[in-house]
């Protein structure tokens, strides 16, 4: 855990900094889609849930916990990207007359 903790912390700090720099440039007009998009992206936690739901070492109880976690994360994977796109589609430039 020791060395992986420090290297994980290293990655976390860099990613938080990257997030700060990237998100700062997002137009305030798009802050609602930004929130739903980041929410969809962090639903990558489905990956961790999959390893629990698919590993039979832990027995049925843990696999079912994993399956619920997969379901929760998949709601955000699918719903998050879809609603973000639905919102972005509505932003239109002035119609030419």
């Amino acid at each position: 855990m020791g060395s992986s903790l420090t290297s994980n912390l290293f990655v976390f700090i860099l990613a938080a900094f990257l997030g700060y720099e990237v998100v700062r440039r997002v137009s305030p007009q798009l802050h609602t889609p930004l929130m739903s998009l980041t929410n969809a992206i962090s639903a990558i936690s489905v990956v961790g849930a999959i390893t629990i739901a698919g590993s039979h070492r832990g027995g049925v109880l843990l696999m079912s916990l994993g399956a619920i976690a997969v379901a929760c994360a998949m709601i955000n994977v699918v719903g998050g990207f879809m609603i973000t796109d639905r919102m972005l589609k509505m932003f239109k430039k002035r119609k030419d007359k």
């Binding site: 590993s55 399956a67 997969v70 379901a71 719903g79």
Partner: peptide, 20 residues
């Protein structure tokens, strides 16, 4: 370590449906 797919599949289908 991912050896069994039925729990994953069940969770994913239910979650995706609710998400849509």
């Amino acid at each position: 370590e991912v050896r069994q797919y039925n729990w994953i599949f069940a969770g994913a289908v239910i979650g995706a449906a609710i998400g849509v």
